[in-house]
Design a protein around this nucleic acid. Structure first.
Lengths: 117, 117
DNA sequence: TTGACATATGCCAATAAAAGCATGTAACGT
DNA sequence: ACGTTACATGCTTTTATTGGCATATGTCAA
């Protein structure tokens, strides 16, 4: 089977760098599609499609303004992600780093097995 | 072009529900692959492949223990995600909710355009 | 050394995501 | 009414990802 549908949840929606790019622009406040096209350098149809995905998972909202559509972030849609990573916060906030260093040594003998293929 | 590579960054790695599932098990501490197979109900090769992706983006570490390989979470790999969402925290932590409600009304007239297609 | 156990990899088929480009739809100006 | 602006949608092609299954690699035990 192929990958899970992009529109499934916020995790997938945000996995796309361009969508994060769009969201980062929208952090500055409500913007029409045209602005997003200019600021991201993407083609207009692609921006619209990405916005659709973001809308379907609930991380952005639209508002009609004449012939323009003003998009804005709805951070509530990002909360699932926030909550999920928050569950791992203590694993780096606390003193697990000391243990990490020890384990790094043991792991060291794996040679070129690391994370950079 | 197709989608960005899964192994590109933590965002993509974590977009896969099964990989989140694996990570959630690993939150309980170091575990050999066999345990993960049992606890996730996935096939062993798939678990190994997912672990490889997670390793390559740096969210898990391996340690050799005889013929087993003990995996554990390296939360530092999740930090980029944490930091990114944190940038949107104020958008739901503060009193933007009031504004949201107002905008919800304006948006209402879009009819069946919402995020649930 | 031979075989069982633990894990990683390779290959295949199926799926769908994303870009590109054309086109549809709706609102504004004149 | 007409053309233009603003945005969304449809279709096609390319490419990556995923599961399934077989198999390679490495380790332990007898």
């Amino acid at each position: 089977m192929a990958r899970a549908a992009t529109t499934a949840d916020a995790f997938n929606a945000v996995a796309e760098p361009r969508r994060r790019q769009i969201l980062d622009v929208l952090r500055g406040g409500e913007r029409p599609v045209g602005d997003l096209v200019v600021e991201t350098g993407l083609a207009q149809p692609q921006v619209s499609k990405h916005l659709r995905v973001l809308r379907e998972v609930g991380v952005v909202r639209v508002r009609e303004d004449g012939r323009r559509r003003l998009y804005r972030v709805d951070a509530r849609g990002l909360k699932p992600i926030h909550d999920w990573v928050a569950g791992y916060e203590d694993l780096w906030t606390e003193r697990f780093d000391a243990l990490d260093d020890v384990l790094d040594d043991l792991e060291r003998d794996e040679g070129a097995d690391g994370h950079a293929e």
